Amino acid sequence: MRLQAATGWISFAAYRGNNQLSLLIHFHIQQGKAASPGRAPFGSFLFLPDVSAAEWSNFLRYIEAEFVQRGIRQLEIKCPPMPYCSDDKRVVEEALARANYISHEDIVTSIPILPVPFYESLHRAEKKKLRKSDTAGAEFQLLLLAQLENVYRHLSEWRASKNLSLSLSLADLQKLAAAFPNHVLLTAVRLKDQWIAANVSLRVTRHVLYNFYHDHDPAWDSLSPVVKLNEGLYHLGRAQGMQWLDLGTSLDNGQLRPSLLEFKVRLGAKLFPKFTFRKVLTHE
């Protein structure tokens, strides 16, 4: 949490009579709004599977009363999508719905990592692009973490050429890599003596590899090197026993970008809902 913000955090926990922790959530407070997880893609609750509806209700009422006293006007809770959680996420969604939280649904995409080659799950159009990259001699590479600044520079320049930017500064990304060096992976697609695509991925759990940042040199649009990049990530994840390659949402300035979503589906991705719950608190 400290990597997101040094201050402004508040945590709530519920204990049972035997001093057993049953519910836990962290919020970051900024400009009259409390958000779980702050800047991260999702946060929400940790809880025991046998927490009752009454325990949920009491916990949420306590949180809201505490925030009202602190002058907080808005609550926001981003719930993790599949495959980051099991079906017990429905318990959270139902508890928040009973407490009159309003839900907003986004779509996330993840490629199941199966005991078959990446190529077999591709749409025929993407198979053609992958063959074209292979014929041209493009190669996937796993890079050393020392290359982070170089990778960031390439990604930033390629994004800028499309009037886009990266959500994290280089300094923030370096802090993340320093704190979790075994969870940050750098990869690239090389053609002859240059990178034509690059990537920053995160090992989020033992089973999920998250394609956090990727982009390619627009001069090589004809090869669509991102297909080759995802092939490399897929096989890298499979070699490490992972089950999912998370491609994230498909948003552009907060709005769904249908063409990007369609591209991810053609790569073999499955669609999952990701819910954000919000509530405006009444100050009496």
Rank of each mutant, 00 (worst) to 15 (best):
K132Q: 15
H28C: 08
S165W: 11
I77A: 07
L209G: 01
F140A: 03
L144D: 13
Q141W: 08
Y62C: 11
H104T: 14
V51N: 09
F212K: 03
S110D: 13
T282R: 10
E105W: 12
S86G: 15
A177K: 07
L23A: 05
Q31V: 06
R266E: 02
R70N: 09
F12A: 05
T249G: 07
R124N: 12
A34E: 03
G248H: 10
A54L: 02
K274N: 05
V265H: 05
N58A: 14
N182I: 01
D87R: 05
L209V: 03
L261N: 00
N150I: 07
L245H: 02
G248C: 10
S44W: 07
K128S: 14
H183V: 04
W9D: 10
H283Y: 03
S165L: 11
G32T: 09
S167K: 06
T282M: 04
A6S: 11
L21K: 15
S224H: 08
F47S: 07
G8M: 04
F67C: 11
Q4Y: 05
V280T: 14
A40P: 00
D221Q: 12
D215R: 07
P83E: 08
G237A: 05
L96E: 11
S169T: 11
A35L: 11
A160W: 02
A178Q: 10
L267E: 06
D252H: 12
